[in-house]
Structure formats: C-alpha cells, structure tokens
Design a protein around this nucleic acid. Structure first.
Lengths: 207, 207
DNA sequence: ATGAAATATTTAGTTGCATAAAATTTTGTA
DNA sequence: TACAAAATTTTATGCAACTAAATATTTCAT
C-alpha cells in the first residue's frame, strides 16, 4: 500500500512546506498569503487547506520539523559538558537559541509563540508543549548525572530543578525573540546573572 | 476646552470598552466581532476602529486599564510581607494571579499574550512590556529591603535577583493561563518547588 | 484497459477585519 | 439662531482566510 500516491502526497506536503517557509521568510507571516504559498508550491489554495488546515497550521508544521533535530543536537552538545549547573544550563540555552535562529527569524518565532499561546487548548499546539516537556527532561537527566557525580546535593529533586531551570531559560528565550536588538550572548549573560543571583540566596539563611 | 465633547468622547470610549469586555467574556475573543461590539456600545463599527484601531487594540486597552490597579495591589500586599525571599515571591505571584483572574478569563489572557508577542516590535505592545519592567522593579525593591534587614547577602545584585525571580514567575504565569486545569494553588506550589530547588544548588560547591 | 475509490481542483460563496471618502450630525461660538 | 469646526456614520470597497459542493483527475485492483 506504499504506492505512488502516498509518495506524491508527501511530495506535495514538503513542497507546500518549503514554499511556505520561503514566503514566511521573505514577506513575513502576516503578509504571506495561502494563495501565494499554493501558487509557489504548484497546488491550489484549497489543497493547502486540506493539508494543513489553517495558515497557523503550516507554521507549526514547520516548527515541528525543526524540533526533531533539536533534541538530538542538545543531547550531543550536553554529553561532553562540564559537570556544573550553570554551565550546563547556559550550554542548553545556547544550543536552543542557535538552533532556533538557524531556521527561522525572530519575527516568525514571535508568531509561533503567539499561535501556540492563543491555541493552547487546541490540539494544534500539543506538539509544541510536548517538546517543552522533552526539553525539560533533558535538563532533568543532566541534573541526575551531576548528582551521581557528587556535584549536586542529593536532596534536590531533579524534576524540580530541571523544571525551574527550563522555565527560566524559556522566559529568557521568549524575551530574546521578542526583542530585535538582543543578541545570543546578551541572553546567555543574563541567564548567568539569573543563576548567580539565585544560587547566592542560600547564604541568606546563614547570614 | 474641557467641554461636553470630550466628556462624550470618554463616555463612548468606556462604553465601547465595556461592551467589548462583555462580548469577549461571552463569546471569546475570536468569535466576538467588531460590528457586534459596536452595536452593543451603540456606535458604528467604524467608530470602534477610530477609537481603538484594531480588535487587538481593544483587548490591550482593557488590559492596560486592569494594570493600573495591579501595581497598587502589589505594593500594598508586599508592604507587610515576611522578610523571606520565597514568601515574597510567592506572595507576589499570588497577587498577580488573583488579580488577573478577577478581570478576564484564562482564554482571554492567552489572546493577550499572543497579541503582545506577535506585535512585540509594535508600539501597541509597549505598555505591556513597560508593566513587566515595573513588576520586576517591585521585586528589586523588596530584595533591597531584605538585604538592608540582613536577610539576604549584600553580594547579590538586587536587579539580577529581581529579574530572575520575575522571569520565573512570568513563565509560571504563562503556563497557568495556558492550562485550563491548573489552579492558583498548583502554580504557587510549583513556584515554591522551583525556588527550593534553585536555592539548594549552592550546597553543590561545598559538597 | 476499465471501473471504483481516493484525492485534488474548480467554482462559488461567506465572513470579518480593515480602510477610504463622502455625507451627515453634533458641538461650540459668534 | 446661524455658522464653522469636529466627530460620527454611511457607503463602498478590498482583502484574505476559510468552507462547501460539484467536477475532474489520478490510482489501484480486477
């Protein structure tokens, strides 16, 4: 049953996605039209709707494709990472930020976040939230590793610290894509500052 | 020059805003139409456009109104707060979450965040980002106070810790409005967990 | 090759945001 | 009261997302 038809279906799907990406990058999400994408992909506008449902659907499909490679990059990058929380987190953030900019512009990512937020209760957003879960899990594993290596107290619940670090990173990520000026290094510096400040609070008890 | 006309202008403005709020709450942002809002407010659709520019513009105006009272609530709530970082942060988050739900539903807040994010480079979003700045500043002041009271090490830069705590809170806030199930208490518990985990990292160095 | 099933396109239409320009009403003043 | 200025409504229009139904095409199995 894996005949010619399915292959053509895939072909059409990818050519629509490719056309959409070009249109989004060239004209921005708002100004890009489904009809234009359809024309560039050599199909009709209705066909685009049949495949992706809505304009936002096309965008999220692009992101989903992008995501598959991210987890791999992350694990590779972190496998030979210094056993220190701040460095792990910064490396984690750096990988995500670079990966993100490699595929789409900030202004497009703003649309992604907007779409996912506005449709948080819709199944269209589920893959995005699932990815967040996976990303947090990457940090959790790193934390466990550091605990095993004796670089972090065993009293810490890895899930909790992983979630906290991920959310902090995510907040800085959103801030990054929302500002045209902010550079990756700026964000990393801020994350360092965040962590340094947070990790110093402990001393309060003994002061 | 503060004549009848200006008063009527204000009247119209508020009646549009009031009608919009009702429509948004009743039918949701997407399904509410400008024409419907206009009718409920007793003006024409074009007049609504004249006053607020876009549909999103109406929404953000509602939020801006809401914001004015938030800072006041916060300072009041925190003025007699225990001098402990976690409690201050939790109280901070609690005040914001309650204030937010008092005015609009989660599903509407999702639209707010989506609009602000999608239009981050547009001046329409500026008031929202300005508010974030102000909110972070509230935390910064609290931190300074705790430092002065000897409950936090002087080595901490208040701006850094304030920003970190605010971003963490903000990430949890977004998670809150994005999930219909999450309750305020759930969020506060998570924030506590976040902070407990983060504040325990310090011990790593001495381990 | 032919017919049945799946798929895509055409055609046509609805909706709603947004804008522009002309006509009308309202307001404040002389 | 009448006039001039300001604001609103009317009227008209464009645009693009989205949907529905009929038509045409492609594919696969017989």
């Amino acid at each position: 049953m894996t005949g010619l038809r399915e292959r053509q279906k895939e072909d059409r799907q990818t050519s629509i996605a490719r056309a959409a990406k070009i249109m989004f990058l060239e004209h921005g999400f708002e100004k890009a039209t489904i009809e234009g994408i359809a024309q560039a992909a050599g199909v009709s506008g209705v066909t685009v709707h049949n495949y992706y449902g809505t304009k936002s659907g096309i965008l999220l499909a692009l992101v989903a494709e992008n995501d598959r490679s991210l987890i791999a990059s992350l694990n590779k990058e972190l496998s030979l990472c210094p056993q220190e929380v701040t460095e792990v987190t910064v490396r984690f953030a750096k990988t995500i930020l670079e990966h993100v900019l490699m595929n789409l512009q900030k202004v497009i990512w703003r649309q992604v976040i907007a779409t996912v937020t506005a449709n948080a209760d819709n199944s269209i957003s589920k893959p995005y939230f699932d990815l967040d879960q996976e990303l947090a899990q990457v940090l959790v594993l790193q934390i466990s590793r550091m605990q095993d290596a004796g670089n972090l107290p065993k009293s810490i619940v890895p899930e909790n610290l992983g979630a906290a670090l991920f959310h902090l990173q995510n907040a800085r990520f959103i801030q990054f894509v929302c500002s045209d000026e902010l550079q990756i290094e700026d964000v990393l510096r801020r994350i360092r500052n965040d962590l340094e400040a947070l990790f110093s609070v402990q001393a309060a008890v003994s002061a």
